[in-house]
């Protein structure tokens, strides 16, 4: 209960579809069992790449600010947006820099490869070990519930609309069984040349 990863609570999930990816998070910020805010998004957009961060809220802010800075510097140097796989390696090496005093976050990266258009998702532990996946990535205090929901709902080659339905039902059902997550959700559906962001109200208890 006093692990830094479960003080503030929160959940995040990413899924692969047919020529599209989806990433979603809840909106709760709490202190143990007390909810302080129901407007604390955990997904951040850097150009065409999406980063979901769950864990200690202070590190969610610190790490998201840090990568905003690093990605902006990359864009100025390279005069192009960062690719998801490049960004994943940047996340990995940046987290490992703090090997013996880590940021208490479990990041998730999602995006489409700018050249091939192939979906890319991956997750990390707090010291930067990359977990590549062809199907879905989960993180946060509801990760066990999310694993169960994703295993039963996800199937290969879902179109953008079906993928939205799948990821939304997986997240909403998972956070309803977790006391530290929920209070609304943000869902991003990423297609070639199109990003759709939807706000889900969810259960407000």
């Amino acid at each position: 209960m006093s692990s830094p990863f479960s003080i503030n609570g929160g959940a995040c999930v990413a899924m692969v579809g047919k020529d599209c990816v989806a990433i979603a998070c809840d909106l709760r910020l709490g202190l143990q069992a007390l909810t302080v805010s129901n407007n604390f998004p955990k997904i951040f957009q850097y150009g065409d790449v999406f980063l979901g961060l769950t864990g200690l809220a202070t590190d969610v802010s610190t790490v998201s600010d840090l990568f905003r800075y690093k990605v902006n510097m990359y864009r100025l140097r390279e005069e192009r947006n960062i690719a998801p796989s490049t960004f994943a390696n940047l996340v990995s090496s940046s987290l490992y820099e703090r090997r013996f005093g880590p940021y208490f976050v479990s990041p998730v990266v999602a995006g489409l490869d700018p050249k091939s258009g192939r979906p890319f998702i991956c997750g990390f532990d707090s010291i930067g070990c990359i977990d590549f996946a062809k199907d879905f990535i989960v993180s946060g205090t509801a990760s066990e519930q999310l694993f169960g929901m994703c295993e039963s709902l996800w199937e290969p080659d879902l179109g953008p609309d079906d993928l939205f339905e799948t990821i939304s039902q997986a997240l909403l059902s998972a956070v309803d069984r977790d006391a530290l997550s929920g209070w609304g959700a943000h869902v991003y559906i990423v297609e070639k040349d199109k990003v759709t962001k939807r706000l889900l109200k969810g259960r407000q208890d």
């Binding site: 003080i7 202190l31 302080v36 805010s37 407007n39 200690l56 809220a57 202070t58 802010s61 610190t62």
Partner: peptide, 12 residues
């Protein structure tokens, strides 16, 4: 803005 000693910031 709500800000605790861990520097968790929330607009409320």
């Amino acid at each position: 803005f709500w800000l605790d000693y861990l520097a968790a910031l929330a607009p409320v």
